[in-house]
Design a protein around this nucleic acid. Structure first.
Length: 418
RNA sequence: GGAGGGGUGCCCGAGUGGUUAAAGGGGACGGGCUGUAAACCCGUUGGCUUCGCCUACGUUGGUUCGAAUCCAACCCCCUCCA
């Protein structure tokens, strides 16, 4: 590969964001000359995004940093159709109101990563429902449908894989790639957008848009995809015991977000630092070279930086401090999930398993019992020996706190009140 | 519209009248070893007021001492035909 002239492309290439590009040299020439507008589309299937969407979000962030203009496209319209890419089954259809509520939630996340506004380099958020909803079927088919060959559509992974596995693919979903292609054209016309980025599973959809732009408007459009990020263990990243790693604090506390990064595999640290933090590359290379126990410093750095981006520097520091006190000193920090229990109730005594459950460390009393039987329940750092054990006022410290743990990693506090 | 196949626990998938809270695998969680890592070994994996009770195999009824297993109707999915 020849040396890239564009700051943006060079940065994201070195950081591991680039998988494929429709015309890297052409794009490089364009981006090194003047600011360009680029977009990435996001589904509105939930009211938050999770770390699976972090790669595209970071791409937009770097784009803006390099002086270009990012567009976050909300798939308010396409979510009604459902992208078949990478999915074996059709998705449940969402109602209009659900989609709108989801968009509002997602918007708040973007505010952390992008600067929105009306200035030349300010980010834009648009909703494709604005143009898709009013389409007239016959007009649309005649103007744009004729540029799509079904023969070719059948060869795209999103369709082909479904057919090969004999999983159903509805006609509705079959149209998804056409709509996404049209999105690109629409954004090119409205905002002069020339680049669409996305995950590697979006390649087919993106290429369709590039071609549509050329055929209909003789526009030169570009596409760029990033690799699917998996963990060193080979799993799709972003799952914890509690489920997806969400980016909003209501769904996943900043402390838990910090812990997610802190607990990554050794083999992932360097890659994740490059992708999910803004640290300079030479600093990352140093951290990546650390061995043995020292690699924990790199993981803390990863957790600090990733959390600061998502939840703010202050939240990251609180989470780090809580982790330090909890793990390195065997104490506890302010940021641990806390359950309030009345003095009166504790005077009588509460079964340890019930408290574990109420503190959210287990999903049910039965699970808590099993945890204790298996030696995983801890009260103030001491293993709970007996599943019938009760917790009383005497177990609280001078501050009226009791520390509960499920295993060595998951902790919660009980605060005595009243 | 016709014919056939199928819907089982977080997922995949056995089970075709009782010994089935339901084999096996995956995942997840816990213990041991560690570095809040990986690998490995062991254990757990429906709920509850837990030596007992309750709820579960698409839904609703039925047969039976007894059903995930048999029957009926309904819902949903797939395949082939029209």
């Amino acid at each position: 590969m020849t040396a890239l002239k564009s700051d943006f492309l060079r940065e994201i290439t070195e950081r591991g964001f680039v998988h494929q590009c429709t015309d890297l040299d052409g794009l490089d020439a364009l981006m090194s000359e003047a600011p360009v507008t680029a977009y990435i589309g996001f589904d509105c299937t939930a009211d938050s995004l999770h770390v699976g969407s972090l790669v595209p979000i970071m791409l937009l962030h770097w784009l803006q940093r390099a002086g270009h203009r990012p567009i976050a496209l909300m798939g308010g319209g396409t979510t009604k159709v459902g992208d078949p890419s990478g999915k074996d089954d059709s998705r449940r259809l969402l109602s209009q109101t659900q989609i709108e509520a989801n968009m509002a939630g997602i918007r708040r996340i973007f505010d952390r990563y992008l600067t929105f506004g009306d200035g030349p380099g300010d980010a834009l958020m648009v909703n494709n429902d604005d143009w898709l909803d009013g389409l007239q079927l016959i007009d649309f088919l005649r103007d744009y449908g004729r540029h799509f060959s079904v023969n070719r559509m059948l060869t795209f992974d999103s369709v082909r894989l479904r057919l090969e596995r004999e999983h159903p693919l509805s006609f509705l979903e079959f149209n998804y790639m056409v709509l996404q292609a049209y999105d690109f054209l629409e954004l090119a016309r409205r905002h002069g957008c020339v680049l669409q980025m996305g995950g590697s599973d979006q390649w087919g959809n993106i290429v369709n848009g590039v071609e549509l732009g050329r055929r209909v408007d003789q526009r030169a459009l570009y596409g760029l995809t990033s690799p699917l990020i998996t963990t060193a263990a080979g799993a799709k990243m972003g799952k914890t015991a509690e489920g997806a790693v969400w980016l909003n604090a209501e769904r996943l506390a900043a402390y838990d977000y910090w812990q997610f990064w802190r607990n990554c595999d050794d083999g992932d640290v360097g890659r994740f630092l490059r992708l999910f933090t803004l640290l300079p590359l030479d600093e990352i290379n140093r951290l990546d070279g650390l061995d043995g126990t020292e690699i924990n410093d790199a993981k803390k750095m990863l957790a600090n930086e990733a959390t600061a981006l998502c939840h703010g520097r202050e939240a990251a520091e609180t989470a780090a401090e809580t982790a330090r006190r909890t793990f390195e000193r065997g104490g506890h920090g302010d940021d641990l999930p806390t359950l309030e229990v009345s003095r009166g109730e504790l005077e009588v005594g509460i079964a340890a398993y019930e408290l574990l459950c109420r503190a959210g460390l287990t999903a049910s009393n039965g699970e808590a019992r099993r945890l204790i039987k298996g030696g995983g329940g801890r009260l103030n750092n001491r293993q709970i020996a007996d599943e019938t054990a009760t917790v009383g006022l005497a177990d609280s410290d001078d501050d009226g706190l009791i520390k509960l743990s499920a295993g060595k990693k998951r902790h919660a506090l009980v605060r005595v009140i009243g």
